[in-house]
Design a binder for these strands. Structure first.
Lengths: 147, 147
DNA sequence: CTACTTGCAAATTGTTTGCAGACCT
DNA sequence: AGGTCTGCAAACAATTTGCAAGTAG
């Protein structure tokens, strides 16, 4: 649960898992590959679909279990991005990267800001709350859809 | 969908609804009362339970429908706060109020910060994205649960 | 009046679980 | 070998929907 994992974008899954005494398996590897290759947000169903495109025999539950495991290890992050019901998943970000979700086309842009770190220090100074994770979620219009 | 509603805390529901040509009904009024009286986050199920404590005959679906309606009118906000599966609801906040969710006891604190407005101007300046709503979600430990 | 809302019960959807067999290490 | 994972199918929980009857304006 600690934020100690290396930036997930550069992680070699097998090493990371073995280092933590967790087994490396085909379903887990495929879930990881799909998320890295895609680079953005995917729902569990989308991940499953893409995984199954590569190996027909992998079951949905294994995808869910792999995602939950990776989240536990801080390798991926669950984010309730959509107006939709399904939650989405992507590789963990370094701190300070936030999500800009377009209301119109639905794409999710990433944006680096130091406001997150500033907020973190504000809170630390106040001693009102010990922040672990800070999640910023902006909705609006992307450059393409603004008009 | 615009952020034009008055601060929900001071809204008189009947007026607000009538002004928009939406009918004022018992279920809607009760859902509103429950949320105002409670002042914080409630799941749909909790709202339903409290509504039914006041009027036995109100159905869950009406609660869901009222919440969806109010969200549409920007009077309440849906927030996927919990580690739990259910989404929670509360009256809309003025901009710049963020949520601090304690990992341990689950309570949700509210915190006023100007970092949100700063971020908003940053984005406006960049012209990378036209922000409508900015949602900040902090997890960590509240004063009581910090060790 | 009459279109908008509700209550009800059944249908969906997303996610989780129990278990016997398969597979990393 | 031995405990960790997986596939499968069934269980669950939250939310949504269709429709006849009720009610606000």
């Amino acid at each position: 649960m600690a934020g100690s994992a290396a930036y997930a974008g550069s992680v070699h899954l097998a090493d990371e898992l073995r280092a933590r005494g967790v087994r490396v398996t085909q379903p887990r590897q495929l879930v990881w590959d799909v998320l890295s290759d895609h680079g953005g947000h995917l729902s569990a169903a989308e991940v499953a679909q893409r995984v199954q495109a590569r190996d027909r025999g992998v079951n949905q539950s294994s995808v869910y279990r792999a995602l939950a495991l990776f989240a536990e290890l801080d390798l991926v992050r669950e984010s309730r991005t959509g107006n939709d019901s399904a939650t989405t998943w992507e590789l963990s970000h370094p701190d300070g990267v936030i999500h800009l979700v377009c209301d119109v086309c639905g794409t999710v842009l990433h944006h680096r800001t130091n406001r997150v770190e500033q907020l973190r220090s504000d809170l630390a100074a106040n001693a009102t709350f010990t922040a672990t994770a800070i999640d910023v979620h902006v909705t609006g219009r992307c450059p393409t859809c603004a008009g």
